[in-house]
Design a protein around this nucleic acid. Structure first.
Lengths: 153, 153
DNA sequence: CAATTTACAGATTTATTTTCTAATAAATCA
DNA sequence: TGATTTATTAGAAAATAAATCTGTAAATTG
């Protein structure tokens, strides 16, 4: 369960590109392919690496429009919260959702085709939810940085 | 450049798990491995698939603490904007940054070890930037949903 | 210190990717 | 429409990589 510097290096490398061969990784880490192979399997088994995913260029699949929505909910009972979160989780357009401290209850990141599609999403999926009290939308003018990579070295 | 339903299916599958073999994908798509192989290569060449990355369990690498920061900048000149964005891009703790419409200029998603580390990040990296006028932090109580997967079918 | 576990390297086997060839379907054009 | 080109596919072969096995050295534990 204890990770050493080699593990951290390996994790960083796989976060950048998980399609590298064990040979390529081994060369950079000055290890044998077996050593690297075993370390990766261990990281997977320990649920440190949870997934391997392809990243898609959203411009090319009609998902260029992005918005951040702040949401306030009516009731803060456990029931209402769980109900809201379950529903949000099932909405395709919602890429991220965080329950946060402060003025608003939730922050959502939404990815759709265009403003028209966003309006449709708001009207038919978000504001129609009985748990939702109010929303506030901010439109993304520019995606400056968007990664899931943690730097740990 | 035109994508058909099979391409979209393939993209969805690779967004879920990019480590599936072409044989596995081919079986699900009712195609030969070569057909799948060629389609994937084409998606990569066309820059539709841009990366293959490992997703890491942040709890296990000391990055459990997440916050959303709203940032206002002093000047909105092109120069100031580009300078700010370049700096932000280089900050390890910043996972996402969006230039947005509305009251604030930027929304940042920050991932660090704990509140202490967040304070350190704010004091030494964010608020020290000359371009920054003010910030407002919201702490993530619960990550309800966090994906980069677009649903396109 | 001996016993046990862990991490590693090298060799081997198994599986997968990549390339090649040929056939078929779809699109383009005279 | 019919001929020609272009894309897409399947199947086989070759090349490469993953996975397994064996043995050894280092680290850990009682």
């Amino acid at each position: 369960m204890k990770l050493d510097t080699t593990d951290y290096k390996l994790i960083e490398m796989l976060q950048q590109n998980c399609k590298q061969t064990t040979k390529e990784l081994a060369d950079q880490l000055d290890l044998s392919t077996t050593a690297v192979y075993e370390r990766i399997k261990k990281l997977e088994k320990q649920n440190i690496i949870t997934d391997y995913v392809a990243i898609i260029n959203k411009e090319k699949i009609n998902r260029s429009f992005m918005a951040i929505a702040h949401v306030k909910i009516k009731s803060h009972s456990k029931d209402a919260i769980l109900r809201f979160e379950k529903k949000v989780d099932q909405i395709r357009e919602v890429l991220e959702c965080f329950h946060v401290s402060g003025e608003y209850d939730y922050i959502l990141k939404i990815g759709v085709q265009d403003m028209e599609a966003y309006r449709e999403f708001m009207l038919s999926k978000l504001t129609t939810m009985e748990e939702v009290q109010s929303t506030h939308s901010m439109f993304v003018i520019k995606e400056v940085k968007n990664t899931k990579t943690y730097h740990i070295l």
